[in-house]
Design a protein around this nucleic acid. Structure first.
Lengths: 260, 260
DNA sequence: CCGACTTTGTGCAAACGTTCACAAGAGCGT
DNA sequence: ACGCTCTTGTGAACGTTTGCACAAAGTCGG
């Protein structure tokens, strides 16, 4: 049991929360390697990655015992181990469907190629865009999804197309054999079991920020002793016109509540 | 008692996980409203948002008792309540720093303006870009951060600049009074207490996908009766292993796995 | 070789999040 | 008014994640 083999950890067992942090550690490790730092303690690495050191140690312990007590972790060795765990020692051809602003941003993204990902093709359905060259790739017709997936052995697809087109594209990707999808369109994709979908939604992130910002401003107002924000008083609510949303004076109730 | 007031919930209590899902519900609700659907059950709404119905009900219960037993939720009313909770009944001017591909994508993003967010200004430090018009905004010099934040009362900033510039931009935004930051640069930003940072990292999402994709292929290979990935053979010394980075046959494993 | 010092790896408990399962409530037909 | 049906809101069980605190295991100076 001193030597933890891959079967212990990889086959089934690394917590999802840990997986989500490994790329963070990897990035911090590469930054250290660039500065020719050969060894790093959990404390230092944790600081660089913006997490708690105990958490970092526990995360890394899921991969195996790759540190040296009293010393720390060997940077290069850890880079290799984390990369291997994440599957980055191999090359992943990615197809990007949708050559709009987001698709271009993705294709041009530097951190893309540098970590084992390679743009296999950039597709779009707009005839005006097809044929143009973006980030060194000639944009191909969206019709070619199946051919591209098959020709390049693509297993990862990024959908950067408009929301209405997303599900259709997704279906075609899946039918063609893609099992991992990165979805930028603001829709919930439905996929068969065994297909992994991750979503990135800019609007959602902004809304979460707005929530906290609003909370802060309400608190601040209270601390200054002002009664309420007076936002719900008259205006604003989308539904207010349609329905009798008279309600309890929300701004005030909320204001009083947050105060404590 | 029976009527749960906002004080119960907002006081200090909505779980972060719930907040993160509210925008999802909101999107689903708007889709329903567009189809003139007036009422929806937790089951239906949950399906539309891609979550479990019990979770949805518990999430909504944190906002208050806005449903009707035996019937469901009134779509318009719930839209209003969720919007209010998220702070979307007011307008949020956002400054975007970095007018590269990502900044343009963000500025052009439709779901942006439609939910209470408004691009106050688009900034860049490249003289070649300053002055050009993107999504109806004349790009201004990055030097104007302080002026823009002050003039428009900006509380949210999006950093779409290169990684090396991100921390500097962040510091200036914070100094100017911005308390919510959406960071697209692949760096860990350090900010004083009270400032909220959310990050979107395309590369991290891809790496997480790669992990699962790799896992799938390894598992599939193993199920076909192959013993194991021959890596545990090497001994435990980091120093020794550091030099022997002889890769186990990853390419093969993957190639075989692809055929499903 | 030893003792002081450093840092990892992990047992444990608390916090947090998810899911089940069902009582309580609301509408509806008779 | 009553019982039937439907759906919410939530207590309780369960699983996951975090963070503390410390033993184990290493380095290093003398």
């Amino acid at each position: 049991m001193s030597r933890r083999t891959r079967s212990d950890s990889s086959l089934q067992g690394i917590p999802e929360a840990t997986i989500a942090r490994l790329p963070l550690y990897l990035r911090a490790l590469y930054a250290l390697a660039d500065r020719d730092i050969a060894s790093v303690s959990s404390e230092e690495l944790a600081a660089a990655a913006g997490v708690n050191s105990a958490k970092l140690r526990k995360d890394l312990s899921h991969l195996g015992s790759y540190g040296t007590r009293g010393v720390g972790y060997d940077v290069d060795y850890l880079i290799y181990q984390v990369s291997r765990e994440l599957g980055l020692t191999q090359d992943w051809p990615v197809v990007i469907v949708g050559a709009g602003n987001l698709g271009r941003a993705l294709a041009n993204y530097g951190g893309f190629a540098s970590r084992g990902f390679r743009v296999a093709a950039l597709l779009d359905s707009d005839p005006a865009v097809i044929g143009s060259v973006i980030a060194g790739h000639r944009v191909r017709a969206a019709d070619e999804i199946e051919r591209v997936v098959s020709d390049y052995g693509v297993m990862i697809g990024a959908i950067t197309a408009p929301a209405v087109a997303a599900q259709g594209i997704c279906d075609r990707l899946v039918a063609a054999g893609v099992t991992s999808i990165l979805n930028f369109a603001p829709v919930v994709l439905s996929v068969p079991d065994g297909v992994d979908v991750r979503k990135v939604d800019l609007s959602i992130e902004l809304q979460i920020l707005a929530f906290h910002a609003q909370r802060r401003s309400v608190v601040r107002v209270l601390h200054r002793g002002e009664p309420g924000v007076g936002v719900a008083a008259s205006n604003g609510s989308p539904a207010a016109a349609k329905r009798t949303l008279a309600l309890d004076g929300d701004g005030q109730v909320r204001a009083e509540a947050v105060g404590s």
